[in-house]
Design a protein around this nucleic acid. Structure first.
Lengths: 341, 341
DNA sequence: CTGAAAGCGCTAACAC
DNA sequence: GTGTTAGCGCTTTCAG
């Protein structure tokens, strides 16, 4: 059950093994006649180069890891798409590490990463166990991060300008006549969520909107975000007066809230307007389709790889790493209605 | 910039390299004193084993490939989740090959697969270029397939019992009083879709339902499935009489059709009931939530890995490979209404 | 242009 | 229990 090696090919073609190697890699010119013999031998023996041997020799794997919690979360899936396609363009393959929010898996994966299973890793969420960052650091693994709270400046990172996003949403709502706007949020376990909430409060003030404490609903308990949205939506409906519009910390929360409104017989957007955040594919699947603040996930994934590539190339970390801030954009759909028409 | 090797550890601990190896792999008993020395050396030098070297030596990578078209398609994401988690349990890692429906990428990935970048591959869709199956075969790559039209019996495979699924959906609709049921389908480019359509026709006959040619709407053009659903939904609404319920070839088509109905002012399920197929996460996100025929994607992914593992272990293909048929189940939600209440 | 030769870091006989 | 040794399949000098 031995497999065909380069040596076999060389023998068959009656040339040196190194010649085959040179030919295959284009690392040295090879006479056209010799080429033919080699090609023939490869065909005849049905030879395929062994990438593991090559990786071993070259001390790299051409594989990049992507560490995320859950691939069935559309946000991460869309991010992963950008990562994987960009990686492919740069001739990297992608190893998917999905932790399922489990500490143990997170640790296992970091262990693998540190053992040079990959040339580098893109981390797409805040590690549960913060100590693991140090492990990555000690092992000098090339890393780039996407939307990760800055535990340090050790690695380059991509962030969304969350403040800008909230402002865009709010400005739009104001422009179409809303002044009474609620904010619904999942638990702000990540910096991004804290920023959004803060930006909302700040903007409400600067735009001089009507403000009511009980229009700001932030869930405490961690659970499915659609459920969070649903229960927050229900709670909001029990408040009086009702706001005319609501901004949400994410699309999933928005969709949940929308379900609550529609279930209660409210009409969206006739009775209440709603804006999500992230602009995942789901937004255009629901009815009415959801207006949302787009987070350029694909691009962020792409940038994540580009940054990682630089780290891999440089090897030595710089004193302070690069930060790329990307801008959100408002995607208007059917969930908002103009009051001042 | 050399990295720490096992040899360095051995030197530091003043033992033989093989002893370190034995200790690390538990392949031979090591005296407790020696163990301590080794552990200390590892700590001191900050050593991590090089998995590539190990892979090379052992002629395996502990990596399994998953070949799918698009990870942002929730169906594949849910499948991938089953695959990746099961793989992890069995100590395999997962390399994600997403072709984006492109012939060129498909070919590139197959090339990598035959070059032993992975120990085996789970193929989750029908390859565009059928010749590539032969390439896999020639290179004797371990393969298992999920929901792939049986081009051959060369590899073990998992299938859904599509007929059963359609029957379950239809029986349910009949039980709650529907007799006029339409069928909306995307282009039947895969066997599964052909089977569903055939099963629908057959069941309509056996259940003696009202049948009308123009309640069977099958899209010709390949495009986004929600759009297909939407336009099929619109087309259906122009027919008279209208059916009281509609079955769809997939959830995405169902969601599109639902959008069309709701946009036109029809109420779901009051005016028309609707059932999807696959039961992707989306079903519970939309309003009304979508009743659907569940395809156990996670389990299918899991089984895909289990089958692949067998192939890897056996090495020699059997004359006729195993087929696992899994059963669908009906998940009732809010999109169907009983007519006979 | 081609070939000989030296390893990459590790595992696994095998001997002691 | 521990050490010696022989490669795994490939890339990459370096000579010729």
């Amino acid at each position: 059950m031995k497999s065909v090696t380069m040596r076999d090919v060389a023998q068959e073609a009656e040339v040196a093994q190194s010649t085959v190697s040179h030919f295959l890699n284009g690392t040295a010119p090879v006479a056209i006649e010799t080429q033919k013999k080699i090609i023939q031998a490869i065909r005849k023996l049905n030879y395929y180069p062994n990438v593991t041997a090559r990786n071993f020799k070259q001390r790299k794997t051409n594989i990049i890891g992507l560490l995320i919690p859950d691939i069935t979360n559309m946000f991460y899936a869309e991010l992963a798409k950008g990562v994987i396609e960009t990686a492919k363009e740069k001739n990297y393959n992608l190893l998917l590490y999905a932790t399922d929010y489990q500490r143990r898996l997170e640790k296992d994966y970091i262990e693998l990463i540190v053992s040079k299973q990959v040339d580098g890793v893109v981390v797409g969420y805040n590690l549960i166990d913060e100590k693991l960052w140090d492990k990555l650091k000690e092992a000098r693994v090339p890393v780039s991060t996407i939307d990760v709270s800055p535990v340090n400046d050790f690695w380059p990172s991509v962030f969304l300008n969350n403040e800008e996003g909230i402002q865009q949403g709010l400005s739009y709502l104001v422009k179409i006549g809303h002044r009474q706007i609620a904010y619904l949020s999942e638990p702000p376990y990540a910096l991004a969520l804290v920023e959004r909430q803060r930006a909302f409060l700040r903007s409400v003030r600067s735009l001089k909107l009507d403000f009511r404490e009980n229009w700001i609903l932030v869930e405490k308990k961690q659970r499915k975000r659609v459920e969070i949205g649903f229960s927050l939506g229900e709670k909001l409906m029990s408040e009086r007066p009702l706001p005319t519009a609501v901004m949400c910390s994410s699309d999933l929360v928005a969709v949940g809230a929308m379900k609550a409104f529609l279930s209660a017989g409210l009409k969206v957007p006739e009775d209440i307007s709603i804006i999500g955040f992230d602009d995942i594919l789901l937004c255009s699947y629901v009815h009415p389709s959801l207006t949302s603040i787009k987070q350029p996930k694909y691009d962020m994934g792409k940038i994540g790889i580009e940054l990682l590539e630089e780290v891999i190339a440089n090897r030595e970390p710089r004193e302070k790493e690069k930060r790329v801030v990307v801008n959100p954009s408002l995607v208007k759909r059917q969930s908002c209605r103009a009051l001042n028409d």
